[in-house]
């Protein structure tokens, strides 16, 4: 297994450690608005274990995917609220 893989976040390429969850990778890349709440506030992961649904992003075209429950895969396309 390679040490690093590449994913695209809102169109920008990022190198991340293999096995890293998408949530951790996005946070490390400086993303702070994973989603935007109904009243317009930026939200980021809170529970880290699939409970709070705050870490929802679009992964490979699938909306509302929990980034904390998804490991990064080579070539993955992630879109955050930033792009929405």
């Amino acid at each position: 297994m390679p040490d690093h893989i590449c994913i695209r976040v809102d169109g920008v390429e990022h190198r991340v450690g293999a096995g890293t969850s998408v949530a951790a990778a996005l946070w490390n890349a400086g993303v702070r608005a994973f989603r935007v709440s109904p009243s317009g506030a930026p939200r980021a992961p809170a529970c880290g274990m699939g409970t709070c649904f705050e870490c929802r992003v679009t992964i490979d075209g699938r909306p509302d995917t929990l980034s904390c429950q998804t490991p990064c895969r080579e070539g993955m396309e992630v879109r955050t609220a930033h792009e929405a």
Binding site: V16, G17, G19, T20, S21, A23, A24, A25, W27, N28, P45, A46, C47, G48, M49, C52, C68, P71
Partner: peptide, 12 residues
């Protein structure tokens, strides 16, 4: 536990 889980999943 949330931060702990995220750190184990690679959050720096």
């Amino acid at each position: 536990g949330g931060l702990q889980a995220l750190v184990k999943a690679g959050l720096d």
